[in-house]
């Protein structure tokens, strides 16, 4: 019994030692790595899964992506917890730069939003060309609509669409308007489960696996345009920001090579993102 106990003590000591070593090795961050706060749409659409290995190959940089809503991603950057933000809400990004949180915003690419709804189409809006008309119909019919409600780029875009449709959503919302406060995927899952309408970015929609009875009901309206921008967090505000590596990542994204890589990403033969770093107004 003595030997058994001694043996188990050695075993325990050995296990603990090995464990502490492993944790330490895990915690030792790769030197050439940056943290990018980005949106759920870039992650859920699979863009990063495709793009990051290419970034690694071309620049040697390991990009660690924190996927959050646009609002939360900007907050993370504001706290100095990220080196780069890569989001899609132009008005919020310009405010971010105006507040001195970043020195420059670079347009990178766009895709578009699509209005998703059940095949039964209770609001009768399938195929409409004007998204405002569709939203008015949803509100009039009281058809269930799922809102992200999380200050994400998609949520902000949705609020702007209600406004331009002449609807004050704070006043008009009733039981039919469900704000879930979650990411794009969760909103699509909820819509799929309750046969509701929902605004989604096209990339996440194409990549989404649980479509159920859902389909695109409205698309192609110029108002559904969805612009992505990238910014280096101001290193003067947060001295820990890796400005050289971060800028290198941004320079790659807006370079002809990076733009071509983005254009090459396809799911089910559909291009998901359209590079437009050269468009000064984007």
């Amino acid at each position: 019994m003595k030997t058994f106990r001694n043996f188990s003590r050695h075993l325990i000591a050995l296990t603990l030692g090995a464990m502490v070593l492993t944790v330490a090795s895990c915690a030792a961050k790769n030197d050439k790595s940056i943290v990018v706060a980005s949106t759920t749409s870039t992650q859920d659409s699979g863009l990063f899964d495709y793009l990051l290995p290419i970034v690694k190959e071309r620049t040697g940089i390991t990009v660690e992506v924190i996927a959050q809503g646009t609002g939360q991603a900007l907050d993370t950057a504001r706290r100095g917890d990220a080196d780069v933000v890569f989001v899609h809400a132009r008005s919020e990004e310009l405010k971010f730069v105006a507040a001195g949180e970043s020195l420059k915003r670079y347009p990178v690419m766009y895709n578009d939003f699509v209005l998703i709804g059940p095949k039964s189409d209770p609001a009768g809006i399938a195929g409409m060309k004007k998204v405002e008309r569709a939203l008015q119909a949803i509100k009039e019919k009281g058809a269930t609509f799922i809102s992200r409600g999380d200050r994400s780029g998609t949520h902000i875009a949705e609020l702007n669409l209600w406004k331009s449709a002449g609807i004050d959503i704070d006043q008009a919302k009733g039981p039919w308007y469900q704000s879930i406060g979650q990411g794009m995927g969760a909103a699509l899952n909820t819509a799929s489960a309750s046969n509701a309408y929902v605004l989604s970015d096209r990339g996440t929609w194409i990549h989404f696996k649980n479509k159920g009875e859902l389909q695109i009901v409205v698309q192609g309206d110029a108002r559904l345009f969805n612009q992505y921008g990238v910014m280096l967090v101001n290193p003067e505000k947060h001295s820990n920001v890796k400005k050289i590596l971060g800028q290198e990542f941004i320079d790659y994204l807006i370079s002809p090579a990076g733009q071509a890589d983005i254009a090459r990403y396809k799911v089910e033969d559909q291009q998901l993102f359209y590079p437009n770093a050269n468009d000064p107004n984007a």
Binding site: V35, D49, G183, G185, K209
Partner: peptide
Amino acid sequence: GGNIQGFTRTMTTTIALETSKGNL
């Protein structure tokens, strides 16, 4: 942890991620 692929992604955060991708 931030659910960073290849760095801080665990079983449970992967499950959460795959759920949000609709990959039930």
